[in-house]
Design a protein around this nucleic acid. Structure first.
Lengths: 120, 120
DNA sequence: CCGTATCCAAGTAGATACTG
DNA sequence: CAGTATCTACTTGGATACGG
């Protein structure tokens, strides 16, 4: 491949962007359809109120997620993927697929490495 | 897609694994062929000696990179991708491609968001 | 040349409490 | 129900120095 430097920088930026603790989980659930704030919170085990807010705000800022607030009492806010966000699900699914297929190999490699390291 | 929960967890694990500051850069350069430690260090601007060691050790542990040390003076250590590591470059390239195509849209979305936020 | 250890600054995320 | 602010613990990564 030509121009590894530039390709890597672009890739590194995306990875850095979505590589935090919660972003892929949020995207994954939104890829199934529109969800309310609390619906997401309940479907993503372990996420705090604060982190869900921050994660959604970041995705909204990047144009990957659309936010729609209804001026009702109590408030109701819906989130869904934008077309740009949906276009990201393809590449992510490819990576998820790789993860599923190669997890055993990874775990085996880790175990073998740790066994060798323990022999010191 | 069925089973979003499980797919996301697998995906989240890979992203967490390769989502640190240097891993994709190292993989990108190794995808071009075998390199010595210092060759990598000089090709990856900004990486510290320590972080390159840690990054390579992590990749080696997961079976993505192979390490070959020559008992010479001075020492010589070569790193290259394993077949497993090479299999990861496909999905990563898809993501890099997405990054290249959609960077302008991302930056535009960010600018628009920040402009709206500044209107408070 | 390559690897490791120590120290430390900065970033990240959880808990909690409060607001509209 | 959704969002914000504050405080704090933990993790990450850079600088530096030393060892094989």
């Amino acid at each position: 491949m030509e121009n590894v430097e530039a390709e890597c920088r672009g890739l590194a930026e995306v990875i850095a962007r979505i590589g935090d603790k919660w972003t892929v989980m949020v995207c994954g659930h939104l890829s199934e359809g529109t969800h309310r704030f609390n619906a997401l919170k309940h479907r993503i085990p372990g996420i705090s109120h604060r982190m869900l807010t921050i994660t959604l705000r970041g995705l909204e800022r990047d144009g990957l997620v659309a936010r729609k607030a209804y001026a009702t009492v109590p408030p109701k806010v819906e989130y869904c993927l934008t077309p740009l966000g949906q276009s990201l699900t393809g590449p992510l699914a490819a990576l998820a697929s790789w993860a599923r297929e190669n997890r055993p190999a990874l775990e085996q490699a880790r175990a073998a490495f740790d066994r060798r390291a323990a022999q010191d």
